[in-house]
Design a protein around this nucleic acid. Structure first.
Lengths: 251, 251
DNA sequence: ACGGTAAGGGTCACATCGACCAGAACCACG
DNA sequence: CGTGGTTCTGGTCGATGTGACCCTTACCGT
């Protein structure tokens, strides 16, 4: 912060060049659900360093924009989405040497979008693709810079966010079934939730979801048609679904 | 970050000076409990801008250190504490114009310490003091830069952290009574907790606190002497004390 | 000795949660 | 057209945890 530079030698008149200069970038971890799996949007780097490797999208912050605006710009450049939807800052990374070229501090954002499948590739030359988060965490593919760590932190964040906020609805469409919403929790937490109990918990918290009165067509496997809901007001304090079962060692 | 600078004109050879330079600082919101009240450590600025105003301590990040190291350095410069104790990053701030001199992005850390009262002033020339957090939030005193916002975010963070981690023990001494620990929760959340139920919840989660077998001397008001505990292993997932009473409108 | 005060421990009603079961509503076969 | 399979919805029940309240214990001051 710009607060008192204590231990300052001869401050007096401010000489910005007297302080170490950094490049500041904004990186966005874009998460989405595809095929019942949590996926992350990656781009293939066109230039050195780490040329040809996968990385999360990002870019330099401009002096005239806020960090949030920079993140939103990156998101829309990459996916074409304008909606501010879910875009939350979750960390800053500035280890020395994390960028071999210069001193770079990056501020990382987490974006939750629904189905960017079609949008991917709408960007310019660079190659972009959705990758299963599990592949990244298992290090089946290497990411540029310290992006593995950033994705790891993002995933940990979304796991917590899922419990304390209503972010789950950002993964699904404007209308959705209970099964779709439940799949979000199951995929991100890696658990199995009882359909009946899940449903009860969700509808009990009134205002969370709003029944539309319509029904979804069952899949080819058959089954009773599910009711369609749309997201209610944002979840503020504490969602109704909890991560850890009480089946643990709590006395 | 530092990922593909898309929309790059003629990248090819990297020219760092082609990208906007920022100063990067680290600010630390140092919280402590004093007189049953949550307090924040502030320093009075010696130079322009905002000369004479209160601010949270901070300073420029050096290219050779990580952000965490810079925060730890600032903390120890200010309080003399070496312990990494509780020092967590919680946000980055980079609005244009937040520092009138130049483009500055700051990374904010939250530190929880116990009783820095004596230490304050051990630093160099600058004036430092503990202020009640409520005074800052009520804007009874103005803070430099966007430090009001930063403190606000820090307080919101500590409120959440208190519920999901074992950070409460960082506020109290190496040994403490249940009443002291309970006072932390009550001050930070602004609630009243039942002493008996609180005690049960804490000791039920085994490993959270460890009885020392010793007893504290009662205050001058009398009363049964309280047992002394020390902190157990760090709380990992979900503390035993919850913020909102179920007495709300949950159907 | 006695009242005041605070900590520790018990009890009980009640809400919640997870496991399980049953019915409803659809599909795909034969 | 009927039958079995599948999925969603709703019900029940026992276990568990929580909050409110009371009582006992153990110290202080006078």
């Amino acid at each position: 912060m710009t607060s008192t530079p204590r231990s300052a030698q001869p401050p007096a008149g401010y000489d910005p060049s007297a302080f170490p200069a950094f490049a500041v970038t904004v990186d966005v971890v874009i998460l989405t659900m595809s095929e019942r799996t949590l996926q992350v949007l990656l781009v293939r780097r066109g230039e050195a360093p780490f040329q040809g490797m996968w990385a999360i999208p990002g870019g330099f912050k401009r002096p005239t924009e806020t960090l949030d605006e920079a993140a939103l710009r990156e998101l829309s450049e990459e996916t074409g989405m304008e909606i501010a939807a879910q875009l939350t800052q979750f960390g800053a990374y500035g280890d020395p040497g994390r960028d071999p070229r210069m001193n770079v501090v990056t501020v990382a954002y987490l974006a939750v979008v629904r189905d960017v499948g079609a949008v991917v590739g709408g960007t310019d030359a660079s190659e972009a693709a959705l990758m299963p988060v599990s592949a990244v965490l298992n290090e089946d593919l290497d990411l540029a810079f310290d992006h593995l760590r950033i994705v790891r932190d993002a995933v940990e964040r979304i796991r917590v966010e899922l419990e304390v906020s209503g972010i789950a609805t950002a993964f699904v469409g404007p209308t959705f079934t209970m099964a779709e919403l439940r799949a979000v929790y199951e995929a991100i937490w890696g658990v199995q939730l009882d359909a009946a109990n899940f449903r009860r918990s969700i509808v009990a918290e009134d205002g969370w979801v709003i029944p539309t009165g319509q029904r979804a067509r069952p899949g080819s496997a058959g089954g009773r048609p599910a009711e369609l809901y749309r997201a209610g007001r944002a979840w503020d304090h504490g969602g109704p679904i909890h991560r850890f079962q009480r089946a643990d060692g709590r006395k």
